[in-house]
């Protein structure tokens, strides 16, 4: 699995993805790790198929007993169907996930991990000295959906917003926004159900200071491409399947 450090400061952000051992018939996903001196948070840790390579990759950065927190942006299997395995591997961890999905996510088995429900209006995750903000992103695409903003690293992890599907050897950052648009268009039109939800989210996100916008699939956006993405998404009609 490819590992890319995307922020290095008082803490670190590492992106994991482009898993070459992944079965061909499951979609590629990006996982993110926030590492502080003694703790480690996995953002959208991935599906059950991905557990072993993901755990192996994380062990380059943290020991098992310092993986203390998991975050699931929403309930999809590519986001968190590995929960039952993390639940057996971790002895002292919390899962931060939307409150409305608790009864659903527990189907994956969540006995030793503490489920910390995120209310609809959001919240925070405190990881030693780092405070991450949980930004409501409901209906983008899931009815109960959150993104993670790190004001210190200026990174916004956006789940399925900004997603695209790429070749396994594709670069991790967008390098030609105009060419990248066509890889995102149908996904966003088909998967995002609500123009109103999209507008509210864009208004909220435009007020944030963002260096990197980090989706769960495909390439990340940095610098001016963040604004380009927001403008493009703003103009896009979504919910086209009705």
């Amino acid at each position: 699995m490819k590992m890319t450090k995307i922020y290095e400061g008082s803490h670190q952000w590492i992106m994991f993805g482009r898993d070459e051992g992944k079965p061909d018939n499951i979609i590629d996903t990006n996982q993110y790790v926030v590492r502080t001196p003694n703790r480690c948070l996995l953002l959208d840790p991935g599906g059950a198929e991905l557990f072993a390579p993901m755990m192996a990759a994380v062990l380059h950065h943290a020991p098992v007993d310092q993986i203390t927190d998991l975050f699931a942006s929403h309930q999809d299997p590519d986001v968190i169907s590995s929960l039952g395995l993390w639940d057996q591997a971790l002895t002292n961890a919390k899962l931060h996930a939307p409150a409305i999905w608790e009864g659903f996510l527990r189907h994956y088995s969540c006995e030793s991990i503490e489920y910390v429900p995120i209310p609809d209006n959001g919240g925070t995750i405190k990881l030693e000295s780092v405070e991450l903000q949980l930004i409501p992103a409901h209906y983008l695409h899931s009815p109960g959906n959150f993104h993670v903003y790190d004001p210190q690293a200026k990174i916004l992890m956006t789940g399925d917003v900004g997603a695209a599907f790429e070749a396994p050897d594709a670069p991790v950052f967008v390098d030609n926004f105009a060419a990248h648009v066509e890889k995102m268009r149908h996904w966003h039109q088909r998967m995002m159900p609500s123009n109103q939800a999209k507008r509210v989210w864009i208004e909220r996100v435009r007020n944030m200071d963002i260096d990197i916008l980090a989706p769960q699939h495909g390439r990340m956006f940095k610098g001016d491409d963040v604004k380009r993405f927001l403008d493009w998404f703003d103009a896009l009609q979504v919910g086209i399947a009705v």
């Binding site: 059950a48 072993a52 755990m55 192996a56 380059h60 943290a62 591997a89």
Partner: peptide
């Protein structure tokens, strides 16, 4: 879980925290 953990341990060979 046991099979996946064994696989993870094997894949992590050479990682700083593999022993954990």
């Amino acid at each position: 879980a046991y099979n996946k953990f064994e696989l993870a341990a094997k894949m992590a060979e050479g990682a700083v925290y593999a022993k954990s």
